[in-house]
Design a protein around this nucleic acid. Sequence first.
DNA 1: GGGTATCTACACCAAATGGTGTAGCGTTTC
DNA 2: GAAACGCTACACCATTTGGTGTAGATACCC
Lengths: 214, 214
Amino acid sequence: MIHITIVEDSFDAREGFRYLLSLDSEVRIVGSFDRAETFIANKDVVDRTDIVLMDIELPGITGIEATRILSAMKPDMNILILTIFAEREKIVNAIQAGAKGYLLKNNDPRDLLSQIKSVHSGGSALSPLAARTLLEELYEKHEIRKEPADYHLTHREIEVCRLIVEGDTYREISDKLSMASATAKKHILNIYRKLDVNSRVTFMKKVFEENLLE
Amino acid sequence: MIHITIVEDSFDAREGFRYLLSLDSEVRIVGSFDRAETFIANKDVVDRTDIVLMDIELPGITGIEATRILSAMKPDMNILILTIFAEREKIVNAIQAGAKGYLLKNNDPRDLLSQIKSVHSGGSALSPLAARTLLEELYEKHEIRKEPADYHLTHREIEVCRLIVEGDTYREISDKLSMASATAKKHILNIYRKLDVNSRVTFMKKVFEENLLE
DNA sequence: GGGTATCTACACCAAATGGTGTAGCGTTTC
DNA sequence: GAAACGCTACACCATTTGGTGTAGATACCC
């Protein structure tokens, strides 16, 4: 039995869900709220809930904020965002808040039951549009993180870089790499010249901002 | 009319898809290959293809590599990965390569047509398991830029932090903030104590890794 | 009033850093 | 064989940095 709570400010929509879910004997509604605060305050219902159908636009705190709070309270609870909004920002924020699904209300309501079951068995449910948005987000993230500019650092210099980032001094670096500290220093100054920096701080800034290591 | 190409090394699977797709008059198969190289080399078919049903395990180059190549050749082509593999790495790589969907073969084959149409109209299609994997990936990525821990830095100390990050020395910081360089130094040492670091480098590392500024 | 916190300021010291030289040795490239 | 590059090593220098003191002024809280 899957225990479901509905958080939705429209009475009609709540009743619509109630009817839809009543068609399946595997699910049962354990709570129905018109605002998230009431649900969050009701610890009994929170504890008993497996899946939340959460609207985004609510009086009081938004569904996304509620998702954040509820995910922290009960990490194994699956929150399914149900909304008419397909904006990138809302979608990404909802997922970041811990939502396990993002469905647009204009989708066929008959699919909802199968999507609830997918989520209950460890999957996630995304409307095609939300899925595309997230895919693009992931695609861009990976795009950005690659192609670090090539400063033609030698193998040895890269080793030295890693140790600088660890906070090692000339001496510590030279000890770890079995060289004279003067050599470590020479390497570092060469690195600085290649990266066009002139201090540990500006070096670190460049490394992190341009993702030069890892 | 949606023009589809199938890349799948199993003859039976190809015929299965062919039959399934023949049930819908809106789609039409324009190509069918047992390996990706043949498809990629056939520019005519590539140009006519709207959607590719792509297997991952193929003789020769993998479906993921093929996806990367085809995405570059024809960016508006939608590639749908169809596979039995649900490993996180394959899923993420496929999306990174530009796939617009990732479906597991054990899903109901009757859903395939509706998912193809979703993808054709600008959406993406993900099996619940693949969706969950990607959500987790995105969630973790965003987790990294979580709420920065509060080290109780004072307002003045935060100003100093910003200047440290810019690479300023004690003297430069004190000049910009109109204080004695000894004071800037005092602030910095206090900051170090609060952040539990002991050098510019370890300070920078903490700032960037924990997203303390911005 | 007394305690706490913030911002300010200075002194002293050892260590690390940045900058510039020079130079030997081995490998790769032309 | 010469040139270029990479890795090594040392000298010398001024500056910066990390660390530890002390201490006055202000403000806020109990």
